[in-house]
Design a binder for these strands. Structure first.
Lengths: 161, 161
DNA sequence: TATTGTTATACTCTATAACTATA
DNA sequence: TATAGTTATAGAGTATAACAATA
């Protein structure tokens, strides 16, 4: 038999006798949980531009790398190379990227942003700043910076290189 | 026309003339990207136990709260209350949680872990430690701690309370 | 009239198998 | 034989609409 609910945390002040235990979870799980939250918010914003987080990631990555090929792009944005095809197709149809055969290895397609792609990115970046402020607004400036640095480093050691 | 690919980053040493620009992205996007990576790894591990990240999250959350109701649980694990039904159903059928009507508000179902649920959690936690070491192994101990603290705080200010 | 939980369903994302063309 | 890209498909995950019981 279950007695009373213990989830009305906001009714208790810090250190009160009945204050519920902190929600404790590992960093890996929290990363997955908060990542889903962040993804949801990005997806909602990007949907207004007719895009998905993968499209955004691809544009952003190409803006950094200038040129790359599909397999590498897929790796960096975190999709299986087989599923990257439709992502790249979509952006190409919209005229935001161009896909040309690599002369040295004709199996490969070199991918790069078009002029229009670069223009679109600027708009998305501005919209993205709003999402980020909303998601991380509860943190101090120092905390946001520290989190950004740590995530950037984690990205390097897990997916990049 | 696209000239050469610029993605063979590992061939260049730091500061070399042709070294590719760092992959720069905002904290919100990185959080979504790395969250998906973490989720994938958790999902793979949990599949061996016939579970999903949501099931894990529900068990972990109940272990912290002891008792709660479905809406609150759904909020904490990040699923729509309507979709939390099948998550709770699954765990109840496995005998890991028990669902009893709240006497004070008979619309509500009080949810709590069973003895067996607590035992299963111990096993999952051990398996989860392996996933976490794998995911965060490239960071130093201090970095892992700092990241964990920041994620925990972000969880508080975004979804909890 | 609002809230808790439920059922049902459509849609998106992700994972995977099988193929073509180049190397 | 291995790799880059493609096509196709099934399953998991997510979002949404409509409803019953209770407040």
């Amino acid at each position: 038999m279950i007695a009373d609910m213990a989830d009305e945390g906001d009714k208790f002040v810090e250190g009160a006798p009945d204050s519920p235990p902190e929600l404790r979870a590992g960093a890996g799980y929290l990363l997955a949980r908060l990542g889903a939250e962040s993804r949801r918010r990005w997806a909602r914003m990007l949907a207004e531009h007719g895009m998905t987080p993968h499209h955004y990631g691809a544009l952003m990555t190409l803006d950094n790398l200038k040129v790359t090929h599909q397999q590498r792009l897929a790796e960096l944005i975190g999709v299986d190379p087989r599923n990257a095809v439709s992502v790249v197709d979509f952006l190409e149809r919209r005229g935001l990227i161009e896909r040309t055969r690599d002369r040295a290895d004709r199996r490969r397609h070199a991918i790069a942003l078009t002029e229009e792609g670069r223009a679109v990115i600027d708009g998305l970046r501005r919209a993205g700043d709003g999402v980020e402020r909303d998601m991380l607004g509860g943190l101090t400036g120092d905390e946001r910076t520290a989190l950004h640095d740590l995530l950037h480093r984690l990205f390097e050691v897990t997916v990049d290189r």
